[in-house]
Design a binder for these strands. Structure first.
Lengths: 202, 202
DNA sequence: GTCTATACTGTGATAGAC
DNA sequence: GTCTATCACAGTATAGAC
C-alpha cells in the first residue's frame, strides 16, 4: 500500500484550494468584469470569507498574477496541436496562426484584458507569471520566420496588427464576426508585403 | 462701455472653474496615473475639498468624460495644420498622418489610455463626449480614401495597425523611439498592399 | 450660489481568537 | 486554516455655513 507523507498530502490539498480559488476568480471576472472583481465575490463562490483568501494568495494582485500566468500557459498548451496541423502553404498557415490566437482571445473579454491590456490599476505581472507569454512570443517568432523568412521587424508589425484588430473587435464589434474578415485581409496585406506567394483559396 | 448681464458673468466664471479642475485632473493623471487619480488629489490642486467638485461635475466619471472629449477635441484641432501641409505623394502622406497621430498619443500615457483604451473601471464616454472622436475617425477615413483610393475595409486595417503599434510602444518601449521605425515599416507594408507607388525617400 | 463638514458604503488589507 | 473585528481610504450624498 502506498504511503503518502503528510507534507505531500497537505501540499496537494493546498494546491487544489488555490486552483479552486482561481477558477472562482475567472467566473467572477467573466460575469461582472475583470476590474470589478472583488475578493468578497471570489470568497463567496468558494464558501469562504474574504480574509481567508490571504491564506492562499498574498494579495488581490497575486490572484491576478496567477490568472495571467494561467491564461498564457493555457494558450501555450494549444500550440502543439496548432503547429501539428499547420497548412504547408505559408500564406494559409499565417492565416491559421492569426485566427487561432484571435479566437482564443476574442471570445473572452476578461482573458483578453488580462493577457493583452493593462486594465488593472496597480498590477504588473511578476517575472515568473510573465515567463509563459515570453515563451509563446519567442516561439511564434521562430515559427513565423521559419515559415515566411520575414525579418524580425516585420514579425513585430504582424504582432501589432493582430493585436490591434483584436482590440478593435472588443471596442466596436464585441460578439460580432466582422473583424474576422478584417483579420484575413490584414494577414493577406502583410503576406503581400513580405512577398509570400498567393494561395489557392481567396 | 460693455454691460455684461449677471447670468453671463456667472456662466463665464463657472466655465473657468471647470477648466481649472480639468487642468488639475490632467496634471494628477500625468503624475500619478490616470487610474490612480483621486478626487481628493484634484481638489487639493485647485484649493478645494473633494465634495466641492460635485458642484462642477456630477461624478468622477463626469470628469473623465470631459477629459475624453477634451483630448479628442485637442487632436481634432491639430488636423487642419496637418492636412494643410500634407505631402502630395500618397505614400509619404500616409506616413505623415500615421506619425502625427502616433506622436500625439505616444508621448502622453494618460492621454493614450483615455483616448484609446478602456482602463477605467466603470467608465464609458457619453455620446456627447464621443462625438469629436467619431468626427476625427470619419474625417481620417475620407482623407485616406481620397488620398489612396483604399477600400473601407483596408482603412480599418490601417487604423488597427497604427493602434496596435502605439499599444506595443507603451507596453514594451515606452519612452523609446524603436516603434517609430516599425510604424514607417507598417505603413509601407499597407501602402504596398493597397498598390501605392513607391516614393523618393526610403 | 459656492464650498465645507460630516457621514455612509464598499474596497483591500491586517491582527488576533479559535 | 478560517473566522471575526477592524482599519484606511475610496467615491459620494446630504445638510448647513457664509
Amino acid at each position: 500500500m502506498l504511503v503518502i507523507p503528510n507534507g505531500d498530502r497537505v501540499a496537494v490539498r493546498r494546491a487544489a484550494t488555490r486552483l479552486e480559488i482561481l477558477e472562482a476568480a475567472w467566473e467572477v471576472a467573466r460575469s461582472k468584469g475583470l476590474v470589478e472583481l472583488t475578493l468578497r465575490d471570489v470568497a463567496d463562490r468558494v464558501g469562504m470569507r474574504a480574509p481567508s483568501l490571504y491564506g492562499h494568495f498574498a494579495s488581490k494582485n497575486a490572484i491576478y498574477d496567477a490568472m495571467f500566468e494561467q491564461a498564457w500557459s493555457d494558450y501555450e498548451a494549444t500550440i502543439p496541436d496548432l503547429e501539428g496541423a499547420l497548412p504547408s502553404h505559408p500564406r494559409t498557415a499565417m492565416r491559421v496562426i492569426a485566427a487561432h490566437f484571435y479566437d482564443f482571445t476574442a471570445t473572452d473579454l476578461a482573458r483578453h484584458q488580462l493577457m493583452n491590456q493593462s486594465v488593472i490599476a496597480g498590477f504588473a505581472p511578476s517575472a515568473e507569471a510573465y515567463a509563459p507569454s515570453v515563451r509563446v512570443l519567442e516561439r511564434a517568432h521562430r515559427t513565423i520566420v521559419a515559415l515566411t523568412g520575414a525579418r524580425t521587424e516585420d514579425v513585430e508589425v504582424w504582432v501589432a496588427l493582430v493585436g490591434g484588430l483584436i482590440n478593435q473587435h472588443h471596442a466596436n464589434d464585441a460578439g460580432g464576426s466582422r473583424h474576422r474578415v478584417l483579420l484575413d485581409r490584414g494577414v493577406d496585406m502583410w503576406a503581400d508585403a513580405v512577398g509570400l506567394p498567393p494561395d489557392d483559396q481567396q
